Simulated assay, not measured.
Amino acid sequence: MSDPERAPARTDAETSTRARIRAGDREAFAALYDAYARAVYNHAYRLTGDWSTAEEVMADTFLDAWRTRERLEPDGGSLKPWLLGMATNKARNATRGLGRRLAFLARRPAPPPVADFADETAGRLDDARRLAAVRQVYGRLRRGEREVLALCVWSGLDYGQAAEALGVPVGTVRSRLSRARARLGRLTEERLREERAQNTSNRREPGRRRGEAEGEAAFAARPLKEIQEGSR
């Protein structure tokens, strides 16, 4: 992740792209789509947990980007925060009222390991097992926590870009990300402990052979008096 205290570098190419899109240049907008469609789609999927909904969010994002192109600032850096900010709002609307818990991470391939998170846990448990636990508890985070993780960790935005995308101060992004990482780590540890306890409880002695089981059942069914007389 780049230095969060430094504003993204502005290039003449980015400024030119912004100007062309503002002016309604379809070729420039097509190039924008080609460059960021996959990033917008992946971001939408992480926030909605549904492939078809993610496709709708992506389509609506670029449709709104074209419709509102004249509001785009003529100067600035990468257009990725602008698009992901719109996608975040679209994803909120798509999931509002559905009560969807983002359990999608348990149903999809593991995301690439995050360096700062993996380093903290290296050597304690197998990475694949820990990542599986992360996927299972990710949906239990608050919406704001999921959003900053999706933007800063998986989409690679720095604090400034994430703040631009969410329309909040940089300090808010910092605090949310810190809380999200801490809570995700705690929930992950809890999940791993639950799995260890479950694995322990599932360890049972080998079952008896059929004849032995039937013999014991018949013995248990005999009247107490008969058992006592037979034991003399």
Rank of each mutant, 00 (worst) to 15 (best):
R193A: 14
P81W: 02
R129Y: 14
A213H: 10
R209E: 13
T15K: 05
R71T: 14
P74E: 14
L72R: 06
P111L: 01
A13W: 12
R186D: 09
R146N: 08
R71D: 13
V153Y: 06
D25Q: 06
T53W: 03
A180M: 03
L141K: 02
L177E: 00
L149R: 02
D25P: 05
T188L: 00
L187H: 00
R92C: 09
Q136C: 12
V40C: 04
R92G: 09
D127K: 13
A37R: 10
L83V: 02
C152I: 09
R193E: 14
Y45I: 11
A23I: 07
M1Y: 12
L72S: 03
R26H: 04
R101S: 09
G85P: 00
R96Q: 14
S52A: 14
G139A: 01
L192A: 03
E120N: 11
L102M: 06
R96L: 15
A115D: 09
A30T: 11
M86A: 15
A132N: 07
P206M: 10
A118C: 10
P4H: 12
Y138A: 01
D158N: 10
R193I: 11
W66L: 04
T68A: 11
F117R: 13
R107K: 09
S155M: 09
R22T: 03
A180D: 00
A165H: 05
P74L: 14
S52T: 11
R38P: 04
P8V: 07
T88F: 06
A218T: 11
E73D: 15
P112D: 06
R203S: 07
A91G: 01
Y36G: 00
T15P: 01
T53A: 04
A133D: 00
R210V: 14
P113M: 05
G77P: 03
E73L: 13
Q198R: 13
R108P: 00
R143A: 13
L79W: 07
T53L: 09
R222Y: 09
R179P: 02
A221P: 01
R142T: 14
A122M: 09
V173K: 05
T188E: 02
L187P: 01
S78F: 08
F62A: 01
E55P: 03
S201N: 07
R208C: 02
E189C: 05
A103Y: 04
P113H: 07
A115P: 12
G171H: 11
E56S: 10
A106N: 02
R129M: 14
R96M: 13
